[in-house]
Write a protein that binds this DNA or RNA. Structure first.
Lengths: 345, 345
DNA sequence: CAGCCTCATCGAAGCGCTTCGACGGACGTA
DNA sequence: TACGTCCGTCGAAGCGCTTCGATGAGGCTG
């Protein structure tokens, strides 16, 4: 069963090769009758254009690269959600996705760009001082970053507005009357690396809390049960007045709840808890958590949309910040304003 | 900055285009001096072969497809580990990886195969009655499956030996003197779908336990805290003699431990717990869990290795089962043989 | 020293597709 | 009726690479 070429289709339909090409691409007007005849032949023969030949002739591979980081402290499920949404969206634009890990380093990007394997790049989890950023500028390959480097000028970046997310958490708690609130963040390494989103969340949280006159504490938080447990226990012992907790660390969410359960602190009666995590994590927790969603699918979708626009030569904004969405579930409740915290015993 | 072609390299080195090609591919003997001259030019000009042209001329794209399932009950982190190990290994063989989701369906596979976009396929999480399997047979595209369908003849399959994994868990507990042991498995949907590994684990567990004269229970297990908690609580209430628990459900592991803590059952003094999960999950738990590792990286690596062998025309075995590795940590301990369970109160 | 190999290199023919310029016929206009 | 337009289609020239057969220069052999 030799593979079917465009020449086979042309012969079968009784037209020129170029006509078939134009029918398929729509780049020139072809009469309805011819068009139909060609399409019938395409189906009859089960024709699929050869990707290599197409890429060679058109200088477009219809493939985009997705570059994943793979660093410590990354939350794998979220990465995976990003990835699948990128693939799905790319397919809607008739593109495929080449998966790359950042551990090939700059040469990897260079190789892929120079060999014309891909038409553009989506880079995930970009850090404040990301070594890939200068290279990207140098290559001039169309690209979209998920996350924000220190200097995003001339690049196209998308991300959840983490500062706003942190702020909304603080505001939600403040509105419920909580005066003493804390943020449990990502593992320490994430901050040390300068991973923008963790810091921006914290800043947004602190600023908003301050604006509402609440006292605040913000701590990094490791991911093992014992570590989380120790952190939470100490935190509550040192600050008995605490009545609101924001957890921006998906792996730690369940452990925080477990620890509170262990300590006999009821949620939300004694402590209100709000998480910044994917919805499914929040829904599956006990009690279901009030949360700000990490819209992995949206971000992935937007990233691809923007990249496609760039490939079309359209103008796209430098920065796209997705507005956070807070969903109230059963882990946050009111607090007697100005009164003493019921969290004290 | 026009892109550098093989002709540029040839001119720069003062040789024919074909000579450059042969130097790069090693398919014909080229003298050392010429070879060096060419390589110098390649580096000087920063030459990278055009992927499309190469694919067109050689009928090999040097790209393999990785097809992910994306079904309910899948454990995303493990998928991600597979994926990255596939990418890393593929790169070692000078191949790239195209990421596909199964939701494009059979047509997706057909398209990719027919368009010569990829040289071969790695399919993850194959089920007993997987619709992709017959298609694969039809396409005749080189492929490797991760997981085992009902009839694996003529295919190449890799997976952890889950039956053995289940058996080792039972044996470990039996050896420690536990006479009454239970398995908490995957969510119900996973069994209903006929996802081989879940059933094979259970069968291996049951058979080995029986062989050691232990009484057994095996239950599916959902992933939310409340559901896990209810399941475990009921299980222990109904079977107070239970002293050993095998958990084959990564998302539930922490919840099981949390529930035991809540019930006042100490691990391992009152109940021994053994998990089938990635090592990092086991290590981070409290206490660190005795576990059989899910060797995601190994499986991914083997899958690619096998695929590359097939692409080279080498013979490869139909089935490759990876031997499970049990690591004893702090969650399993001895039981007074024949005596009454300390799990009873 | 003719004849034959071998080794290193070259030239040219595709691989299957896109795209550009050309061309013929139908139609409208003068 | 003659001419200019426009529409739909065709043919051919690449795109950058691999690969096959050919070629020429040495080195052996008898």
């Amino acid at each position: 069963m030799r593979t079917v070429t465009i020449a086979d289709v042309a012969k079968h339909a009784g037209v020129a090769v170029s006509t078939v090409s134009y029918v398929l691409s729509g780049k020139r007007a072809i009469s309805a009758t011819t068009s139909q005849r060609v399409m019938r032949s395409v189906r009859a023969l089960g024709y699929h254009p050869n990707a290599g030949a197409r890429a060679l002739a058109s200088k477009r591979s219809n493939v985009i690269a997705l570059v994943l980081p793979l660093r410590a402290g990354m939350h794998l499920p979220v990465l995976m959600q990003f990835a699948t949404s990128v693939v799905t969206t790319a397919r809607q634009f008739d593109h495929d996705v080449l998966l790359m890990t950042a551990d090939e380093g700059p040469d990897g990007l260079r190789r892929v760009a120079a060999s014309a394997l891909v038409d553009g790049l989506v880079l995930m989890d970009v850090e404040i001082h990301d070594p890939r950023v200068p290279l990207l500028r140098e290559l001039g390959e169309p690209s979209v970053l998920i996350g924000f480097p220190a200097d995003p000028t001339g690049l196209t970046c998308v991300d959840l507005d983490f500062a706003r997310a942190g702020a909304e958490c603080a505001e939600h708690l403040a509105t419920l009357g909580h005066r003493h609130i804390a943020l449990l963040g990502a593992p320490r390494v994430v901050y040390e690396r300068g991973t923008g989103y963790a810091e921006r969340t914290m800043e947004g949280f602190l600023e908003a809390a301050r604006g509402h006159g609440a006292t605040t504490i913000a701590l990094p938080c490791e991911e093992g049960f014992d570590e989380v447990s120790a952190t939470v226990t100490t935190l509550l012992a040192d600050h008995p007045e605490l009545s609101g907790l924001v957890v921006h660390n998906e792996a730690a969410v369940d452990h925080v709840l477990g620890t509170l359960r262990m300590l006999g602190r009821r949620v939300p009666e004694d402590v209100s808890v709000i998480a910044i995590c994917p919805d499914d994590v929040a829904e599956r927790a006990s009690p279901p958590l009030t949360s700000v969603a990490i819209p992995a699918a949206d971000v992935g979708h937007q990233a691809v949309r923007l990249l496609m626009a760039k490939l079309d030569g359209s103008f796209v904004p430098d920065a796209t910040l997705l507005a956070p969405r807070l969903t109230v579930r059963q882990s946050t409740g009111g607090q007697i304003t100005g009164g003493q915290s019921t969290g004290e015993r």
